[in-house]
Each structure stands twice: as C-alpha cells, then as structure tokens.
Amino acid sequence: MSAVVPPSRRAILSLYSTSLRTANSFSSYNFRHYFLRRTKEKFRQLQNESDPARIQSQFNEAVKELAVLRRSAIVNQLYGGWKLAVERTPEQPEETMTRSDN
C-alpha cells in the first residue's frame, strides 16, 4: 500500500447517511437544521472532488466530525428540545393578542 486509496463510494454513502441521521437526531430546531444543511453541503463538496488525497482527508475529517456530532446530539436530546414558535403545528394555533382597552 503506497498510493492513497480513496474511500469507496459505498463507504462515503454510508458515512453520509449516518451523518444525516445523526444531524436529524438533534432535538433543538436550530442545531438540527444547521447540521443537516452543513452535512449536505460537505458531502456535495466531497462528491465533486476528484483528487484522491483530498477525498481521503475530507473523508477523515467527516468521520471525526461524526463522532463529535453523535455525542453532541445525545447531550442535546437530554437538555434541549423545547419547541420553537416556528415549529408550531396547526393543532397548536397561536393565541392572538387583543387589546383590553377598547
């Protein structure tokens, strides 16, 4: 083994789907959306890369980041996750404020 053997397509796809799933498991709205978007961007970039060495290094970077995300998602599930007003579902209509002085 001398030349860099880039990770297989399957390995990349598998890492991608695990990363997406992990990002999606954040309870907090903002973090979940951010990491989903970032994961998609990162893998799109990886997809467009042709230099094997760079693919390898980006892949390794993504593996490391997945470990961080996994732990972070667990902590976030434990302590985060209040619903935000943007996440309000139709069953939870917002109250409308009316003035009491007229």
Binding site: F26, S27, N30, F31, F35, E65, V68, L69, R71, S72, A73, V75, N76, G81, W82, K83, L84, A85, V86, R88, Q92
Partner: peptide, 25 residues
C-alpha cells in the same frame, strides 16, 4: 418539558449567541 412550552425564536445574536454543540463537546 418539551410539549407544553413553546419558546420564541431567537434573533438577538448581538446580546449573546448559543453555544455551538461542537464547542460544548
């Protein structure tokens, strides 16, 4: 906990920003 409380969305990043989960990790 989660179900009963709905929080406002946060648009006051000059006052403070949330801790990035990667930072906490």
């Amino acid at each position: 906990s989660a179900k009963e409380k709905i929080r406002p969305i946060y648009l006051d990043m000059q006052a403070t920003t949330p801790v990035d989960p990667r930072v906490l990790d």
